[in-house]
Design a protein around this nucleic acid. Sequence first.
DNA 1: CTTTCATTTGAATAACTGTTCATATATCGA
DNA 2: TCGATATATGAACAGTTATTCAAATGAAAG
Lengths: 118, 118
Amino acid sequence: MSQSNPTASETAFHPDVVEHVRADLPSDEFLYDLAELFKVFGDSTRIKVLFALFESELCVGDIAQVLNLSQSAVSHQLRILKQCKLVKFRREGKTVYYSLDDDHVRSIIAMGAEHIED
Amino acid sequence: MSQSNPTASETAFHPDVVEHVRADLPSDEFLYDLAELFKVFGDSTRIKVLFALFESELCVGDIAQVLNLSQSAVSHQLRILKQCKLVKFRREGKTVYYSLDDDHVRSIIAMGAEHIED
DNA sequence: CTTTCATTTGAATAACTGTTCATATATCGA
DNA sequence: TCGATATATGAACAGTTATTCAAATGAAAG
């Protein structure tokens, strides 16, 4: 018998395929982290914030103005964007200016946008 | 005065910037759709399903086996992936085979993966 | 037509998430 | 030091969502 996988496929329809696919899956941790990243893009408020920052560096109050949101809501979302390195910030007196951290953000959003336009 | 924007920026710090950024924002509908798309990628179960389908076409039961999930849970998620055209399917007797619908899926995930590896 | 198998669907529950409101921190000027 | 301003944070509430379980399709075989 060519089958010797104990964990998988006792009732599987295609045990060989199941085993092969399973073997090539990335680690659970990687898949989890990836989902976490996309989760961040999966909120329209955060997407709006990112699009606003596409144009130029902005302070918190201006982002709130642009998007018609409360300052608190914006600050909460910026915190999340900061955590996964999508935005960076610099302080100038009382004001904190946010900007995109790298170009991955643009690439990822561009790919998403491409899929939508069908 | 060079400012004449009625809707925005009564209390904004940089009214001119606010107005400019706001003018260049995509429509709310587009931004909402984009967030909806990323929301689909933002769940580790769905990400796992997509990665499994990277390898080959699979039927529902095999996906469940590969990922160690209930058939029902997989079916529910496949429904969502189907709705936004990320996967397609074909029926063969009682069995339904799922596969990736286009290469956008790979591109989007590749971009996300690139960001994580830092 | 009845049984069996693969998948789908619906309802219910539990967990998560974004906003709001109130409060706290931080910086600057008087 | 005190007040004003910009931002951050914490708790609470409301809305959303993924899973489970049970039941329902849909398709082939006898």
